[in-house]
Design a protein around this nucleic acid. Sequence first.
DNA 1: GCCTTAACTTGATCTGGGTCAAGCTTACTT
DNA 2: AAGTAAGCTTGACCCAGATCAAGTTAAGGC
Lengths: 195, 195
Amino acid sequence: MSNFETLFYYIQETSGKLLSEDDKHLLMAHFKPKKLRKRQYFLQEGDVCKYIAFIVKGSARTFTVDDKGHEHILKLSLENWWIVDFESFYLLTPSRFNIEALENLEVLQSTNAQIEEFLKHIPAFSAMSNVISQNNTIATQKRMQAAMIYTAEERYEDLISNYPQFLQRFPQNMIASYLGLSPETLSRLKKNSFK
Amino acid sequence: MSNFETLFYYIQETSGKLLSEDDKHLLMAHFKPKKLRKRQYFLQEGDVCKYIAFIVKGSARTFTVDDKGHEHILKLSLENWWIVDFESFYLLTPSRFNIEALENLEVLQSTNAQIEEFLKHIPAFSAMSNVISQNNTIATQKRMQAAMIYTAEERYEDLISNYPQFLQRFPQNMIASYLGLSPETLSRLKKNSFK
DNA sequence: GCCTTAACTTGATCTGGGTCAAGCTTACTT
DNA sequence: AAGTAAGCTTGACCCAGATCAAGTTAAGGC
C-alpha cells in the first residue's frame, strides 16, 4: 500500500464515507510526503506548528521540558495517527511542545489553509474531522479522569489493556514519562505486578 | 435578556456568524427550558446522558465517585457553558459521571438527534460547534500538561488567573477537588501564599 | 433567633512515588 | 569483537500532599 493509499483508507474507514477520484487528486496535490530520521524533530518548542502530519510509518512523541529540565511526554503516536500541536496550529502561537521521531518516520503533511480547503470540499474529510474530534474529546476526558483517580499501577494496567502495542514499540522510560512516572517507579511496579 | 436571547447571543458571538429568524425559530422549537434546584442532578452515574444543556443561569459540577467513595470534580460550569457527558451522549453508553446543580440552575436542553439537525441546517450553530471543539481540545491539552508539570500551588495560581470567577462562585472544597487536592491542602496553601 | 449541618482551619502523622547513586544489560558504532 | 552509550533494575533516603482528628466559623432551615 502506498503512502496515499494508507491515508485514503484511513479517511474512508474513519468517516464511513467514500472518497471520489477528484477528492483523492485534491488530497494528493496538497499532502506532501516527508521523511524524518530517528531523533529528528517534527516540531520544536518556540516554533509555530505550521504542519499537521499523518503518520504512515514510524512513531513519535510529543513532550515538554519543565523548568528543571525534565521531559514530560504528553502523547505517543504510531501509524495512522496525526501529529500536531493544535493550539499552535490553529492560533499560530509559538508551541510549548516538541515532537520528535522515535523511529524513522514517514508522514504526509499539510498546512492549516489546505486543511480548511479539504474540510470545505471533501465530505469524507470533514466527517473524519468530526469523528476524530469527538473521539479526542472522549479520550482526553478519560485520561483526565484516569490521572485524577487512578494510582500509578492502575494507570499502567489501563495502558496495557488499551494500548498493548505501546509496550512493543516504545522504550520503558518513555512509557513511564507518558504515565507521569519516573523510570524507577515503573520498573518497580512491573516487578511487583508479577508476584 | 430572555433565556433564548442569551443562547442566541452566545451562538453568534462564538461562531462569528448571525442567526436568521428561521434559525432562531428552529432553535426555540427544539431547545427546552428546564429548571433544577440546588443539589438536583442533571445526570446520574449509570444513566445515559440523553441531553446536552446550555446554562443560562446558575452553576454545576461534573464529578465521579471512586471505589473508596471519594468524589472527584472534573469540571465546574457556569453561565454560557454546556453541560453534558460527551462519551455517553454520543455513544449512548451509561455515564460514569454525575452532573449536579450547585446553585439553582436554568438551562436550555436538547437531544443528540436535534443537535444533528441544528448542525445540518444552521451554519452559525455548526461554526460554533467547531470553535467549541477547537477550544476544548486546546484547553484539555493545557490542563493535561498542567496536571503533569505543575505543583499544587502553581495549579491554584493558574486557576486564579484563568478563572477568577470560580473563587466567588464555588466553595473552596469544590475548588480543591477540581484541582485534585484535599481541602486541607488547599487551605494550607492559601495561608502560605499570603505570607 | 436558634439549631443543625456544611465549610474551613490547624496540627500530627503517614505514604506513594520522586530523587540520588551505583551496578547491570542490552544494543549501536566503528 | 570491543567499546561506549542508552536503557533497565535495585537500594537508601526524602518530600509533597493525603489522611485522621479535633476544633472553629459560617450559613440554611424552621
